[in-house]
Structures are given as C-alpha cells and as structure tokens.
Simulated scan of single mutants.
Amino acid sequence: MPALLRRLCMLALCVALPLRAAELTVDLGHGARTYRTEQLLARGDARTIDIPDDVSFKRAMRYRAVPLKALLQGARPEDALLFVASDGFAAEIPATTILQAHGSEAWLAVEEPARPWPPLAENKVAGPFYVVWTDPQAMRIGPEQWPFQLAAIRRLAPVAERFPGIVPDLALKPDGAVRKGFAVFQRTCFACHTLNGQGEARLGPDLNIPHNPTEYLREDLLRAYIRDPQSLRHWPQARMPGFDRQALSDAELDELLAYLRHMSGRKAHPTSP
C-alpha cells in the first residue's frame, strides 16, 4: 500500500506541474516571430490530420497540426526558406512549394505536451515541431523535406549569393546535366552535407573537401550507396536515408553524379572554419 500511495503522489505531482511549451522562431526578414506550443494548438486553423505513411515513423500517424503556409505570411513564392532543426539538420525548401502547392500540402505538426509522440529509431525524438505533408506523392516531396525537431524557419538570399563555392561553372548550359544536378543536389543532399565547406547543415561530411565521393567510390557502388546506404556498409548508427526511385529518379541520380564529378574539379577550400 505505501508503494501504491507513493506512485499516486508522483502521478499527482506530474499532473500538477506546468507542462513546458516549446518555441518555434520564424524570421522572414520583417522581424522574427516566436510561436509557442500552446499558441499553435489554440489556433482556429489547427486541425487533426492523418498521415498514412509517415516518412520518419515509417507508419501511419495522427497529428494536431497547423497549415504551414499560414505561418509564412510575408514570404514570396520566389523566396528560399531554411528549416533548421535542433539536431543540426538544415533543409532548404523553395517557398513556392509550400505557398503555391498543387496537390501536396505542408503542415506544422505540433507535439502536445500531454500526448508526446513515440520515439523514432535509435530513441531519437521528432518533436516538438515537425513538417509533414498530406499527399506528398502529388509533388514528389522527398524525405529531406520532412524536417523534425524543428527550431526555426528563416528566409534566405539566393543560394548562389550565400554559397558561391557550391555553384557549378556558369558557362554550362542551364538545361545540361550538371546544372540540373546542382538543383538535385540542393534538394536531396544540401540538407545534411556541405560542399567546399559551404552550407548550413552539420549532419554529414563535406562532399568535396578533402575528397569528392566520385573520386573514391566506383560509380556502381556510389549509386548503390545513395539508393540504400546500408547495402554498402551496414552501420546501425548511420543517419543517411536512402533515396528510392520515387524520391530520386534514375535520371535525377545521373544528373546528381554529373554535378558531383564536375565539382571534384572545382575544389575551393574555405578560408575560415
């Protein structure tokens, strides 16, 4: 009986304690705004949504969520937006993908303090904020466009202005494989990797310094690694996701490799750490 009373007292204490709300910062160049958990959950446009095949949880999930475009007032379709996670992940998503979507819709899932989400693999957590998509297949939304542990959203200058070291030779044809591969790189790789020491992400190694993967991996092995990293080297702690043909077509993979091969001849060592 004493043990049961202790458990009941602990439960009562947990219920009585105030639940800590998380904060999300949105800075679109007009002054940063901070959104707290309770504010987002109390919004009139908050909805309960079902995600049949969640990219991170690998199963059906239900969330309390807010339409993401409702939090991006002042953003322009031509803007680039950086989604910064607390674990070092940084995903750049074109604003037009969210503001002028055709079929897919982006939502900010908000973790309710009283109903925490289950842990991800390796006991990682997705909360407190997580970008999820309804009908992602309609616009071929890739797994890197589902950032979790979201802490901030920032409006960015064009990528060529911010990171000139990742830009291929501008003399190349805009519709050529290398320039197309540069766009694929930004969509699929730049969320986790830097190149020539430039970029926001800190999850994966640099893809050009000291060596470009096209320099030390045979092309067939590199293709296999991109499709399924565990097929090349089984490592339970690995964090890189695989890119199947739905997320990255064979043609896009060809273009990505063309860009990486091109950039292996354009190494630019950063001048500062």
Rank of each mutant, 00 (worst) to 15 (best):
P119L: 10
P119D: 14
L120A: 12
L120T: 08
L120S: 09
E122K: 14
E122N: 15
E122G: 05
E122C: 08
N123Q: 15
N123H: 13
N123C: 07
N123F: 12
N123K: 12
K124L: 13
V125D: 07
V125W: 09
A126K: 04
P128F: 05
P128N: 10
F129T: 01
F129S: 00
F129K: 00
F129V: 01
Y130D: 02
V131C: 06
V132F: 02
V132H: 00
V132K: 01
V132S: 02
V132L: 05
W133E: 03
T134V: 05
D135E: 14
D135T: 10
P136A: 11
P136G: 08
P136R: 10
P136E: 12
A138D: 06
A138L: 08
A138S: 13
M139N: 14
R140Y: 00
R140H: 07
R140D: 03
R140K: 11
R140P: 01
I141L: 02
I141R: 00
G142H: 09
G142V: 14
G142S: 14
P143K: 03
P143T: 06
E144R: 15
E144K: 12
E144F: 12
W146E: 06
F148Q: 11
Q149T: 15
L150S: 02
L150D: 02
A151S: 14
A151K: 15
A151P: 05
A151Q: 15
A151W: 11
A151D: 11
A151E: 13
A152K: 13
I153A: 01
R154S: 08
R154F: 13
R155Y: 05
L156R: 08
L156T: 07
L156C: 05
L156Y: 01
L156S: 04
A157E: 15
A157T: 09
A157F: 06
P158D: 05
V159Q: 05
V159L: 12
V159T: 13
E161N: 07
E161W: 08
E161C: 04
E161D: 13
E161Y: 04
R162K: 07
R162N: 06
P164F: 08
I166H: 06
I166N: 09
I166M: 13
V167D: 00
P168R: 02
D169G: 05
D169Q: 06
D169S: 08
D169K: 04
L170C: 06
L170N: 08
K173Y: 08
P174W: 10
P174A: 12
P174L: 07
P174Q: 10
D175P: 02
D175C: 05
D175Q: 12
D175W: 01
G176F: 05
G176C: 08
G176T: 09
